[in-house]
Design a protein around this nucleic acid. Structure first.
Lengths: 222, 222
DNA sequence: CCGAATCCTGTCCGATACTG
DNA sequence: CAGTATCGGACAGGATTCGG
């Protein structure tokens, strides 16, 4: 435990990397931004992570003050991991860096995404200019979990839980929905392959125009 | 080379980590945001990095399209590493994440910083509200290199090179200057220990009030 | 002298098996 | 369900050496 590898750098950014720069650490945080999860669910959502690594990261993040281990009240009485307020303040990182990576010349599209990754990508790719004069309430039920997406005043918000006043409700999985938003797939195609839409489909179609893919960066010589 | 460890995740953020998530990678980029450097200077500015690791990161980042290897024109004819435009777009990450880390309950202050780290920290800690109605041109000469710092319209910019119209010129090293900006050290103390100031000292004193330290996050239990 | 390539050692990661 | 134990392999750290 004493042999922890650290940059010995006064730079606050370098000290951030000491806390969240190890492999998987930021992805663990990504999976907790919309609310607490149990160990096994975290493992399921983080494809490929080993149990010992997940365990290690959670204790490291807990010691850093980013994650807290909680026990849900009876009768549930299961223990879950949640972000502290400060830990949740990392959310903008995912949007800023995700938007940057969306311009990678090597970006692989069409790969499966976790529910949390898909929801964060909305905030990353959202184009405020295209949303001018548009307001909408959309409830997304991905993998059975409801999320309230709201567009208003050129801003997009995503919160866990049911939407108070949805114009449209979309049920299905994120990997069916995202090609509609980012790759121009016709909504009808997605509905034919499992996506269910109830309510105002026009709102959803309009919503799907708010996420333009940025042009990839040029690759210097290769 | 083929055995590169990757998250196989469609999430753009996870793919960003595939590119810049390895140890030292983001710090290498940090050291290049204000302009190209030679291998040896990079090694000197990144305290503790091993030559083979630096070499490996540079070739990885070059393949990713983030870094380019250039040869300066004769008579210099030395090779330098520079960021691509896309690579330089990572600069906001340092500010956002640095500002986040400044609230760490474990933050170590008073440690030495590189020139680039110090300059990026200005953008991270700058408080626009405190700069209302204030405009200033400040030339910082840190470790012999000049940087033009400008405050205007509630915004702060930092560019490499001499300032066109400086109100004040500060010469010295970043570790003498930063305590004045962030820790309330009296400017006179810093000047007594090596910082040299020519021009309007009042502008510098006012400038030093623009960088309030945020309150550290509470540590949940211990 | 600069920019690496090459040892070697230690630590971390990944996969699986196993336990309260 | 929620982790711990174990082990092989990949990667990082440090020193040395080599080519331009």
């Amino acid at each position: 435990m004493a042999g922890k590898r650290r940059y010995e750098d006064g730079c606050a950014f370098a000290q951030a990397l000491d806390l969240v720069g190890e492999r998987w650490a930021l992805l663990v945080i990504r999976e907790l931004v919309f609310g607490p999860k149990r160990f096994t669910d975290l493992k399921a959502d983080l494809t490929g992570i080993a149990t010992n690594v997940l365990s290690q990261r959670l204790t490291d993040l807990e010691q850093a003050g980013i994650v807290v281990k909680k026990e849900l009240p009876p009768p549930a009485r299961v223990q879950v991991y949640d972000l502290t307020d400060w830990g949740r303040d990392l959310a903008p990182i995912f949007r800023v860096m995700g938007r940057w990576a969306a311009r990678s010349p090597h970006l692989k599209t069409g790969w499966p995404l976790s529910v949390n990754a898909a929801l964060l990508s909305l905030g990353a790719m959202f184009d405020a200019a295209r949303a001018e004069g548009f307001a909408a309430g959309i409830e997304l039920r991905l993998d059975g979990q409801p999320f309230a997406v709201t567009v208003r005043d050129g801003r997009l918000t995503v919160d866990p839980g049911l939407h108070e006043a949805p114009d449209v409700v979309v049920t299905g999985d994120q990997n069916s929905l995202l090609p509609v938003l980012y790759a121009g797939m016709p909504l009808n195609d997605a509905m034919r392959s499992g996506l269910r839409v109830t309510g105002d489909v026009g709102v959803l179609r309009r919503f799907a125009t708010l996420f333009p893919m940025p042009a990839p960066a040029p690759l210097p010589a290769g």
